[in-house]
Nucleic acid binder design. Structure first.
Lengths: 338, 338
DNA sequence: CTGTTAGCGCTTTCAG
DNA sequence: CTGAAAGCGCTAACAG
C-alpha cells in the first residue's frame, strides 16, 4: 500500500514477459509452462511481491470478505460465535469485518449498510433485541446479497439460520426445576418480539403443562436485558403476595444480575429461590452458588453459519437455505439443587 | 456488488454530463455549480447509488480501514478495547477488521500479514503472550505502515503506545494487601517476557521494599495464563513449607482460576488467603467473595489508541509517537478485606 | 464551472 | 503456451 509496492508489472518487466503471463502463473493457471511459472514464482518471492487485493476485488467484483453483525462483542457467547466464524472463514480464504449493533435496531441497519457498502460478499447476522421487522433483511434478499442468521434470528425469511433448540433447552430447565420441587417458577425473559424469548417461553410452558402446573402470567417478565430492568423485575417478582421459588433467566448475564440482587436481599440460592441461566458462560461455575445453565455450542454455531454462507457463495444457484438446529445440554450446578 | 450496481457513469448518462462532474458533485467539490450538484445528488438518490469503495480504494490507495489484532476476542477487556476503537473509527469514517492471535506469536504474525495484504491503512495491536521479539513490527515500520500498540506492548519501538500505569496499579494492590496485614504475598504473574508481567512485578517489588518486606522469590510464579498452569502453580504455592497469605493475580481470569482452586481445597478467602486480580471484569463483583481488582479503562484505551492512529493517518509527517499512560483505580472488595 | 484523458493493479477474453 | 488489449469504478491532472 505504501510507495514502491511491487506489482505484477514489476515482475513482468524483470522477466521480460507479459503481465498476463505473470498473472496466470501466479494463480497456477494450467496453461502456463512449468518453467515459466517457476521463474515467476521465484521472482515474486525475490521481490517480496504481495498481490493487491483491492485491485483483485475490483476486477472480479468479490472481496473475499464476510460481514458480521452481532448485538455486542463484550459477550462471551457472541465472541465465541465470532471465533467460530473467523476460523472457518480464514480456512476457506475469507476475511471478516465485524460490527456490533449495541442491541439497537437503527445501529443494526447502519451496520448492514456499512458492510454492504464495503462490498462484503456475504453477511452473518445475529439480530438486536429491538429487531422485530424484516425490511432491512428483505432489502438484502432483493439485492441478492447472501446472508445467514444465527442465534438471534427472525423466522419466515428464505435464508439459512443457525440456532440451538431453544424450546427444548428451556423445557429441560423448567422440567429440572419442577423435579427439584419448585412449584412457582418465574421466567425472566427477554423482549417479547425476540425469537429466543418466544422459543424459550414455549419450552417453559410445555414443561409446566406436562407436569400439570398452571402457568401464572404474573411469573413471566420481559426484560430488555439491562441490569437495571432485570433488577427492577426481580424486585417486582419478590414483592408479589405469592413470590416465586425459582427463577429461570433468559441468559447467564441476566441470571448473574438476578443473583446479585437476591444476595443483596439476603435471599438464599437455591434454598429460598432456585436459579438457572442459559448460555454457560465460563464464569458460571465460579459463581457462588455455581450457576445451573444450558450449554450452548457457540463456537460450533459460528462455524456452521460460516460454512453455510460460504457454501452459498461457492454455488449461488444450487443453494437451498437450511435451518440448522443444534442441541443443548442442561448443566446442573448448585444454584438449582434443592 | 451485484449485477446492475449503479455507478457514476449511470448518473452521468441520465443527466447528460461527464462522469468527472458527477464524481466531483458527489464529493462536494467547491468547483461545481450548486444547481448541478443538486441535480446529481437527486439523481444519485433516485437511482439508489452507492459508491464502490473498492474502486475508490484502488484509486486513492487508501481503504479507510483499520486492522486490529488482539490476543483474544472472548475477553471482556479486549472486547471493550475494540468497542472503543470501533466507535472512534466509525465516527471518523473508518471501518475496522479484527483478528485474534489466540495468544500465539505465529498467529499474530499471520494476522498482521493478512491485514496488511488487505491494505488496511493502519493497525492497532495488542501483542500475544508469546511475543517477545520485534521483527514483525519492525517490518511494519520499514514499510511505513502506521500502527499503535496498546495494553500488551513492547518498549523501545518508535511508535505510539497506550497502556495503563501497570506499575502503579500493582503497587496499589500490594500496598493494600500489606495494609490488610498480609506478610507473604504471592504474585502470580504472566509470561516473563510480557510487558505487563514486568511492569506489574516492578510495582509489586516497590511496595514490598517500601514496607520493608523482603521479597521471597518462591512466591513469584509465571503462568502462561491458562487455567491448567494457573491451578498447578497455586497448588505448588500452597504446598510450600511456608505458604502465602495473599495472592495477587496478574488479571481477573487468572484470579478466578485461583479462586476456584482455593475453594476446591476448602481454603477461605480472604481469611486464609486474600486475593486480588487486575482488570475489573463485570462479573468480578458477582463472585463470592467479590473480587478485589484494579479497574482498567478498556474502552478509553481503545478510543485513545484509535484517535492516535487516525491523527497519524491524517498527518503522517507532522506526527510524533506518544506514550499514553492511563491511570487505574484499585477496587477493594471482600476478597482482600481481612 | 465542466469535460477529456489517463491510469490505480489486476483478470480475462481474444488472437496468435 | 503467451501476448495485446480492454475494462472493473473511480479520481485527478490538465485543458478549456
Amino acid at each position: 500500500m505504501k510507495k514502491g509496492q511491487v506489482t505484477i508489472r514489476d515482475i513482468a518487466l524483470k522477466l521480460n514477459i507479459s503481465i498476463s503471463t505473470v498473472s496466470r502463473a501466479l494463480r497456477n493457471s494450467p496453461e502456463i509452462k512449468l518453467e515459466t511459472r517457476k521463474k515467476v514464482l521465484a521472482m515474486a518471492d525475490k521481490l517480496n511481491y504481495s498481490p493487491n487485493v483491492v485491485a483483485q476485488s475490483l476486477r472480479v467484483n468479490k472481496t473475499k470478505t464476510l460481514g458480521i453483525v452481532v448485538p455486542e462483542l463484550a459477550s462471551h457467547f457472541f465472541a465465541s460465535n465470532i471465533s467460530g466464524i473467523q476460523d472457518t472463514a480464514y480456512r476457506r480464504g475469507y476475511n471478516v469485518m465485524i460490527c456490533q449493533s449495541n442491541e439497537s435496531f437503527e445501529q443494526e441497519k447502519s451496520d448492514i449498510r456499512t458492510l454492504v457498502s464495503s462490498r462484503v460478499d456475504g453477511l452473518l447476522i445475529s439480530l438486536s433485541r429491538e429487531t422485530v421487522s424484516y425490511d432491512h433483511l428483505q432489502n438484502l434478499i432483493d439485492r441478492e446479497i447472501p446472508f445467514v442468521l444465527f442465534d438471534r434470528i427472525l423466522e419466515g425469511l428464505p435464508v439459512s439460520t443457525v440456532t440451538v433448540d431453544d424450546t427444548l433447552g428451556a423445557y429441560k430447565v423448567t422440567r429440572h426445576l419442577i423435579e427439584q420441587g419448585c412449584q412457582r417458577i418465574a421466567f425472566l425473559s427477554g423482549p417479547e418480539g425476540m425469537y429466543i424469548s418466544q422459543k424459550r417461553m414455549d419450552g417453559y410452558e410445555k414443561a409446566l403443562s406436562e407436569k400439570g402446573i398452571i402457568m401464572d402470567p404474573g411469573l413471566v417478565r420481559h426484560s430488555d436485558l439491562t441490569s437495571e430492568t432485570t433488577q427492577a423485575m426481580v424486585r417486582d417478582l419478590l414483592d408479589q403476595p405469592n413470590p416465586p421459588d425459582a427463577i429461570f433467566a433468559i441468559n447467564d448475564p441476566v441470571a448473574i444480575d438476578v443473583m446479585k440482587f437476591l444476595k443483596g436481599r439476603g435471599i438464599r440460592i437455591p434454598q429460598d429461590i432456585a436459579l438457572v441461566g442459559f448460555t454457560n458462560m465460563p464464569v458460571s461455575d465460579a459463581l457462588e452458588p455455581a450457576l445451573s445453565t444450558v450449554d450452548q455450542p457457540a463456537y460450533e454455531m459460528g462455524r456452521l453459519a460460516a460454512n453455510n454462507l460460504l457454501d452459498q457463495l461457492m454455488d449461488p444457484d444450487g443453494f437451498e437455505p437450511k435451518n440448522i438446529v443444534l442441541d443443548t445440554e442442561l448443566v446442573i450446578r448448585k444454584s438449582s439443587e434443592k
